[in-house]
Structure formats: structure tokens, C-alpha cells
Deep mutational scan, measured.
Amino acid sequence: MPSETPQAEVGPTGCPHRSGPHSAKGSLEKGSPEDKEAKEPLWIRPDAPSRCTWQLGRPASESPHHHTAPAKSPKILPDILKKIGDTPMVRINKIGKKFGLKCELLAKCEFFNAGGSVKDRISLRMIEDAERDGTLKPGDTIIEPTSGNTGIGLALAAAVRGYRCIIVMPEKMSSEKVDVLRALGAEIVRTPTNARFDSPESHVGVAWRLKNEIPNSHILDQYRNASNPLAHYDTTADEILQQCDGKLDMLVASVGTGGTITGIARKLKEKCPGCRIIGVDPEGSILAEPEELNQTEQTTYEVEGIGYDFIPTVLDRTVVDKWFKSNDEEAFTFARMLIAQEGLLCGGSAGSTVAVAVKAAQELQEGQRCVVILPDSVRNYMTKFLSDRWMLQKGFLKEEDLTEKKPWWWHLRVQELGLSAPLTVLPTITCGHTIEILREKGFDQAPVVDEAGVILGMVTLGNMLSSLLAGKVQPSDQVGKVIYKQFKQIRLTDTLGRLSHILEMDHFALVV
């Protein structure tokens, strides 16, 4: 994948999101292997301009796509893939009243899908469409860049269908997702969380590099694949309309690839034109409109599966009536509230959605109805927002919020430890010299600072030695090549209790 991002070429006709291997024109390309080798690009942008032909009021008969309808489940399912879809609609009884809503608040519980998330729908649909058009064949390999849930859905379907599955996901995604993927037989590649989507090191860039190296491999490409919004247009939206008897006044959905909100909203605009569509985008993402909503100094966020630093091709923002931004604290607070007060075992993005819903639905009156999409299960986040310690460490809970008995030293300040200034190293000294210094002084790690004293990161003896043994660096290389740029900081005025929580999850903390 090139470091400079080429513009994806656009073909003359058809839909841009065809499933299957992508040609340089962004659509299915038939021909000899030699032709494909000559024409197939190194990668295709996940934010390529959409060429979708959908228009409100256009006859369904003019759609270029294969459409399906929700099917009634048999008493005995032939395999677990038949437990994807037909998820329950559940009334939220307490939270709406707590925040003064007059309307009825309903939750579409997508964590009841077989793999635990709304992404099971698009995973199965992308595979079925690729099999139907002859792209996927027995023994082929599926590769997908994902925040985890699409990966789980694909790995689940691949396990049943017999495909090899490789999932490329950023490091910030939970260990629970990784464990589930491994249990399903998927191979996992992790990428830096802070890598831009168009960087060769991003999950998108690495996935395309693997595709170019592995024979008979395919990126189904949830960011561009029409099967993504079509899955929701054909099934999720129809289920909502049936469950609500066609009567709903507002739908609120958090947005990642945009397939969920695009597919549902398009069908609702056709069948229930008075329904307002509300999009939820986390602070630090750029999906919301108008652009002024996205202006923030924050560039990272903890909530998973929603928000991006690019506009995915499948996201149709014209069908969203209003956007709201959400933050991590309210997302996790509301997710825990949904679990504790409503018994809905949902993930953090569901918290984002409901946090926005109780604001947006203030305009609705008694007798009206708001539906929220709860995308995934708490299963993926047992060591994250479900953990009091994690919430404390991230600053989303305060010590006084917890009532468990603490040891005698818990409320003492870090400054009472009488710490001395640490050994520091410059980023320009060599790895070999740094190892000598650390061994001589008896230290395992040291902060790396520039000549102005600005902290650049941390270097550890173990990481340097393993990097040297693996051949990633040489003793003569500058130590700046092996620094940890993500590390926890703590102030002298913070409590030892807070430091204790940090050290339970990290090997060190830097006192500043």
C-alpha cells in the first residue's frame, strides 16, 4: 500500500459497493488471473465517493441489488447463522422517566444476534452475496479491517462455511474481542490505534497488504460494500417497522461504517417519512454534520465500534436529520445504567446512543415513540467499562463513588512517597548505550525526554532486548525507535489509591 493515498477510480455505471474482489474501477472485475494482476490496485480507499443510485421515491424494481426479506425461524435451526436477525424490541421503562421523557422509549437489542452484535447481519450478508456472485469459493481466505464486531461476525460465518479468516484490528480494541476471535479460529493482526486510516500501518493498510500477498484472499470491505446497508434496509428496518406496527417518530443510532443508519433510515424514509433520524458520533470522530460539531482538541476516545477519521463510502449522511456528539463518560455511564436499571447487557456504544436519545427525544410528546439501536453486548468489555477499576483509572468514576473498604494508605498523596527525580535518556542515544546505562543503574525503564525536557515516551529494558533479539533494531539504532509513546501519567497530588489502580493494569506510571 502506498504512503500517498491515490484516488480510487470510478467506473461508468453500476453501484460502487459490489461485493467481491475490487477492480481499479471499484466494481467486480472478471477475466484471467493475468488481467486481474495487471488491473487490481494495491488498495482502494474506504472513503471513495459513493456511486449508489438510491433515491427517495425511486421504484424498488430499479435497484441493481439482490434483495432479501426477513424469514421466520424454524423450530430447529440448521446452523447458528440462522440465529442472525429477528432481534427483540424491548421497552426501556426507567431511564426515559428518569430523564423526563414523555414518549415511549424502545430498544432494538442487536446483541441477541448469534455473534453478539449488529455486525453479524452485514457479515453474513457480505459472505452470502460474495458466494452468490462467485467471488468467494471453498478454501478462500477472508481478510477484514475491523474494530472487532464485524470480525467476530465474519469469523463466526467463516467457521460454519469453512473459510480461512484473518482479522486486522487496532490495538485499542478489547482483549475479549481478541479472545472470541481466536476461539472462532480467526487469525488476528493488531495495528497502532493512532495510525491514520490511509497510513500503511493502519488496520485498513495492513489488511490490503495481506490481501496482495495471500492468494485467493478477499477483503469484503464493510466500508464500501453495498451488502452492509442492504442488510439493514432489507431486514433490520423491516423488523423495526413490523415490531412497531409502522408507528415510530424517531430513530437514534450510533454511527461507525454508517451501514446501520443508512440502511434503516432509507427504508424508514420510504415507509415512515415523518420519522426523524438521529445520528450519534463520538467526540474525536469526524462523521457528524455540520462540520463545526467535529471541532475539538480530542483525537482519541475509548468507546469502541463507532466514529472514524474518514467518511466511509457506505455512509449516506443525507438521510440523517440531526447529529449529536457523545463523550466517553456519558457513554459508559449510560451503558452501566442500562445494565443495572433495565437488565440490558449492552456495550458502550449503546450507552452513547441512549445518552443522546434522552436529549433528542425531549421534543417528542406522549403517545409518540423513539427507537434506539443497541449494537453489541457487554461480553466484549468485561475488563473495560464493566470494571470499576478501569473506570477509575480512566477518570470516568471517582473514588467516592465506590463504597468498598480501602487499605490505610489509600488516600495518601503520591508526594508522600518522597520520590527522587528519575533517570532520563535522550532519544538520540543508541539502544546499546541505553541498555548499558539501565543495567549500570539497576533500572528496568526510563523516560525519554528531548533537550527541552519534554517527555516523549518510555523505554524499557525488556522491550529493547526483545527488539534486538527479533532483529527489529540494532544496538547502533537510536533509542527513539523503541519508545512507548502511550503511558499513564500521575500527579504528586493524586492518591496512592489512584496509582494502585493504574499499576494493576500497566507496568509503570510516570509522575509529573
Rank of each mutant, 00 (worst) to 15 (best):
H218G: 01
A195F: 03
A38D: 11
L124S: 14
N93W: 02
P170Q: 02
A207R: 00
K269T: 07
E213R: 11
V178E: 07
V168R: 04
E9I: 10
W54E: 06
R182I: 09
P70F: 05
G20T: 09
C165Q: 02
T68C: 11
A186W: 00
E34V: 11
I122D: 00
E110I: 00
K211C: 05
L77N: 09
C15N: 02
D198T: 06
P170C: 00
I44Q: 15
G274P: 05
A60Y: 11
C15Q: 07
G57F: 08
A159G: 03
P33M: 08
P21L: 12
K247R: 13
K36T: 07
V206E: 06
N113Q: 07
I219C: 01
S61W: 09
D234G: 08
A195Y: 05
V204Y: 10
S50F: 05
G263L: 00
L230A: 06
V178S: 07
T262W: 03
R190A: 01
G20M: 09
L42W: 03
K102H: 07
S174D: 01
P59D: 10
S61T: 15
P21Y: 02
H67A: 07
S254W: 04
L77M: 13
S19K: 12
P59C: 12
F99K: 09
I142F: 06
M169A: 05
L106Y: 09
A226F: 01
A130Y: 00
P273D: 06
A265Y: 06
V189I: 09
S254P: 15
I152H: 00
P273T: 04
L42F: 10
G151R: 00
I143A: 01
K271S: 15
P41H: 10
R58T: 11
T257R: 01
V118M: 11
E40L: 15
E40R: 05
R182H: 13
P74S: 12
P78M: 03
E4W: 12
G57Y: 07
C103N: 05
I219M: 09
R125W: 12
K247C: 11
R196A: 08
A130L: 05
A186E: 05
I152T: 05
G148A: 05
K177S: 00
M173W: 00
I122F: 02
S254G: 05
E9D: 13
K108Q: 04
L105D: 00
L77Q: 11
